[in-house]
Structures are given as C-alpha cells and as structure tokens.
Design a protein around this nucleic acid. Structure first.
Length: 269
DNA sequence: AGCTCATGGCGAG
DNA sequence: TCGCCCTGAGCTG
C-alpha cells in the first residue's frame, strides 16, 4: 500500500474524520499502550504527511509519528467497531469513525523537536506544494548513483516508492541505470512535474494509475490488468509481459534489494 | 502448516 | 550487501 500518496490520503482522511474532537486512543496489541494512555481522550487537532511519514497532532503539542514500512496497513471505518485483534498497534476512534493501524515500522509519541528532525532529513515531497525540486536537483546532478536508486532515496525525494519510481522513468523514456549526473535539467523538471500530477491523482483515487488514456490496455485491444496494488501501470510487476507501447518484453532486475522493472525498448540507454 | 513475496528502512559488517 | 523488523495473502503440501 504505502507510497507517499497513501500517506497523504491517510492524513486527509484523519483530518476529515477526527480533527477538532476528542478521540479515544488505544493499543490493543499493547506495543503503543503507554503512549496511547497519555493521549486517550485528548483532542486530535491536526494530521500531516511528509513523504511516507504520517504525523497526527494532539492538543498540547504531542505528535504520533507513523511509518507504515513495507507491511503496515490502515483500516478506516464506521461503527460497529470490529473487536480489537492482537495485531492492532493503534486504534483511534470517536463516535462516528475508527482507524486501525497494523504492522507499522514506526508508531511513536514524539515532540516538536523530533518531528522537525524528521522533516530535515527528508527531501522535497511532490505532494507538499511548498517543496522545492531544486533541492533534489542539486544532489541528483552531481551524483554518480543511478537515477533509479536516487528516486528511491528519501533524502533526495520524499514519497516516491518502487511503483512510482518504475513508472515515472518509463513515462520519460529514461534508462533506470542512467547516472544522476547524466540527467538533463529539463528531464528532472519534467519528472518532478509528472510526479506532482501522478501522486495527486494517487491521493484522489487512493491507488496508483500511471497509464495515459490512449495507452490503456482496453484501448490497445488487450484485457485490463489488475494487480494487487490496484492500479493501471506500464511496467511495475509486468516482467516478461509485452510493453503496452513497443510490444517488447518488460525486464526486471534487483537493485538495492528491490525489484526494478523497465522496458529496454522504450527506455533507451 | 510452512514457504515466498510484497508499494520500506535501519544498522551491522 | 546482508539480515532484520513489522503483517498478511497466496501459494504449496
């Protein structure tokens, strides 16, 4: 589930459902129980995302810092609230809504200073309107690391994960193994602008869709593809399948412990 | 019942 | 670069 769009959507959803009112806070699993007791009954007064990090604000200046990691999942719903199971790390509820968090890498009570430190170690986020792509460019343009690795580095760009990485490189015809220093400024500007668009769309739909209408499989006489992540994509997890554009085989390879997907035909050397 | 894999990230060596 | 942490689905037997 979790690339930046998921987290920004969760921030919006928590704002809509919980902000401005007292909430009950609990940790059925127990691992967040002490902190939950401190927050229980207080007013939740904000929610914010930076990259894949979610911050829930509580009146009085405390924050819950959440990072879903690879396995973390949220279940949001309306009463009846399901019986708490032993994997629910954090449950937030008011009379109208509940929010269950399972399997996060991080769920911690933090203060402003720690929150600030997290922001400072993250790069600009395409979903934060004030963030500046020049900060990312300054590092990319002098890096001997591959563009594919740079896009996944949260210190460079915050919020891009394995799906957006593969898809945005495909959309711009860029070989994932190209080095950062060999990227042109206008290519980076186009990538950033595209990420802003794609990820905003991802927040709106709560899923990742990257295929342009005219390239949708239906439009090309092929059956639509439905992957676990639920969106329509060009290359992600399409290894050995034909490219929607050139018909060549999509290739996959390991890169920094993750699977990379790309079309050698469309993403020229 | 047990294995593998997954949209992440950290610290040790 | 590897092992490790968090969970659950989809296989395999």
């Amino acid at each position: 589930m979790p690339e930046g769009h998921t987290i920004h959507r969760l921030a919006e959803d928590h704002l809509d459902r919980f902000a401005g009112r007292e909430v009950s806070v609990s940790s059925p699993q127990g691992r967040f129980a002490e902190s939950a007791a401190l927050l229980d009954g207080r007013i939740l007064d904000g929610a914010e995302a930076h990259g894949k990090h979610l911050f829930l604000a509580f009146e009085g200046g405390d924050w819950i810092h959440i990072h879903l990691g690879l396995f973390g999942k949220y279940a949001l719903g309306t009463p009846p609230v399901p019986p708490p199971t032993d994997t629910v790390r954090l449950r937030i509820a008011n009379g109208d809504h509940y929010s269950d968090l399972r399997g996060p890498t991080t769920c911690a009570l933090i203060a402003d200073g720690e929150k600030k430190a997290i922001h400072e170690r993250l790069g600009p986020d395409p979903l934060r309107p004030a963030d500046d792509p020049d900060r990312a460019w300054a590092r990319i343009s002098r890096s001997r690391t591959t563009v594919a690795a740079l896009l996944m580095d949260q210190k460079i760009v915050a919020g891009v994960g394995n799906v957006y990485r593969a898809e945005v490189l495909f959309r711009h015809g860029i070989d994932p193994y190209r080095l950062g220093k060999d990227l042109a400024r206008r290519e980076w500007d186009a990538i950033w602008a595209d990420l802003v668009l794609l990820m905003r769309e991802g927040v709106r739909n709560n899923r990742i869709d990257t295929v342009r209408d005219e390239h949708l499989p239906e439009a090309m006489g092929r059956p639509p593809r439905v992957d676990d992540h639920g969106g329509e994509v060009y290359v992600y997890r399409r290894a050995n399948m034909p490219c929607h554009i050139c018909g060549g085989e999509i290739r996959t390879a390991g890169l920094a412990a993750r699977n990379l997907f790309w079309c050698p035909g469309c993403q020229g050397r």
